[in-house]
Write a protein that binds this DNA or RNA. Structure first.
Lengths: 131, 131
DNA sequence: GTGTTTGCAAACAATTTGCAGAATT
DNA sequence: AATTCTGCAAATTGTTTGCAAACAC
């Protein structure tokens, strides 16, 4: 989370720029496929390295999705997400992060609760029709 | 989730019995290591197969832990969990599953929300001391 | 007997890492 | 010049799968 020295790179700039253009929440591989149009010989390892680095610094959000592939979000404002159990798409929810959940959970708990992740599941609009 | 025909096996019985004895929430590998004492030539594949089968039938709970290794819980009563960011241990929280979260999230959302997973993070009692 | 389950090993998917060279400061 | 970053390929991790034999009903 602490900002370390960081040199700029075309690859990382492209990754951040791309993430900012998207409201859906691409996976590492989606980022890789996209950036390849611009920087054809970028490697998947570089994409993973940068996504890890950026999310550790808090510049982007890593969205863990119940054992499925991680997604990434350029909107670092804490908010909740939804994942479709059919197509796997990830969407934002209006619901803002609720600190009270952490407080409530802390009441009967001896350890230290710092945060929570909350993921909603179901079917997105499109998939709801097809099923 | 639907109960299919299922023949009994010593291996599966041992897995379920073991999970029931534990309040912590073992991973597949922890189950494997433990059952090996009783059934030395059980294979890791069998453990994974049974854990998957049992959790699909709803006989046990699979706990996805933010990209980290899945844990398993014989207590199928829906409740929330805590994971320690230091030692990785998983603990139960008193907080019961809150259906209102699903309702609230549904208000501004066009798709269908069926459930949510909520995982708290921080430091367990032991690790809180060491850090 | 029929169908399920097992052990084993190989396959797999997602991600991480080691390294020598290239790029940034 | 010093250090960070990259591409590449190999390694790792967690998990799944194909198959023939073993087992349960």
């Amino acid at each position: 989370m602490e900002k370390t020295t960081m040199k700029r790179s075309r690859q990382r700039d492209a990754i951040v720029a791309f993430l900012k253009t998207r409201k859906d929440h691409p996976t590492a591989d989606m980022v890789y496929q996209e950036i390849r149009n611009e920087i054809p010989n970028i490697s998947l390892g570089t994409v993973y390295r940068n996504l890890a680095q950026l999310s550790e610094r808090g510049d982007i959000l890593r969205l863990p999705c119940d054992g499925k592939v991680d997604h990434f979000d350029a909107d670092t404002n804490p908010h909740y997400h939804f994942i479709c159990n059919h197509c796997g798409c990830v969407k934002d929810l209006e619901l803002p992060y609720d600190c009270k959940l952490d407080q409530n959970a802390s009441v009967e708990f001896e350890g230290i609760i710092m945060k929570h992740t909350l993921l909603f599941e179901g079917y997105c609009t499109d998939c709801a029709k097809t099923i």
